[in-house]
Amino acid sequence: MAKQRAFDVTTLPGFTFIAILSFVLLYAPIATLVIYSFNGGNSVNQWGGFSLQWYVVAFNNEAVQDAAARSLIIAVWASVISTVLATMAALGTTRRGKFKGQTVIYIILNQPLMVPEIVTAVALLIFFSSVKVVTGYTGLGYLILAHSAFCIPFAYLPIKARLEGMDTAMETAAADLYATPWQTFRYVTLPLLLPGVIAGAMLAFIISLDNVIITEFVKSAGQDTLPTYMLGQLRRALTPEVNAISTALLALTVLILIVFVFVTKKRE
């Protein structure tokens, strides 16, 4: 086949070199960041021997603990809410003919992917600050709502993709056996759809966990998440503590991605 031939049509001059270069450029800074999180010294660029001290420092830092807990709470809520809503939306919009208002619904569902984050952030700052004054409520609810909203398209897309690849025969069979629509959904559709739902929930979780700008604008007193805490730190001082936090977050992301690949692989 083509691969065995001396003249390979799939290679273009310099492409492999640039590709390898891109990977090196992408990974070298991240690798450095990870390596220096194990630095025994105080500096982010002078090696002082291997040590876990910065993980200990970060772990014992109350502000980091709070921010991490808050990030997780928001991400769990946001991914649950957005996944439930996105699953419903996917069921309502997929595997059916064209319908009135389809384009509008698609635009609204995918809007967070299109509007620049800074604009949404500013809009929510204005809107929520008035709501806060009227209701007097300043809790995490605003962040959870905002995160759930922009997570919807990320949850929606894998669920929709999964649904589109699913045959309706099983559901039809269930209906033929006099299953109620709910029973059909609960015992037929949902189990088949589950890999898509899990994938969607994981993407939503990562997206919520990583958000900086909208969180920065919407947060009230003492509502720093890990990323906004880091933003504050980065503007001020650089200690390997930030490297340690970054590495931990990075590890979490990679872990979720591996599970994600595993879950989505299974369906094939």
């Binding site: 709070d66 004054v133 409520y137 300043t138 009230s220 007193a221 003492g222 503007r235």
Partner: peptide, 23 residues
């Protein structure tokens, strides 16, 4: 819980926006 600001105007804006949650 301490929240940082970088200038007087930033702080004033955030507080004036209302229900900032700060004491």
């Amino acid at each position: 819980t301490v929240t940082d600001y970088d200038s007087n105007t930033t702080a004033l804006t955030k507080v004036e926006a209302g229900a900032s949650g700060f004491d």
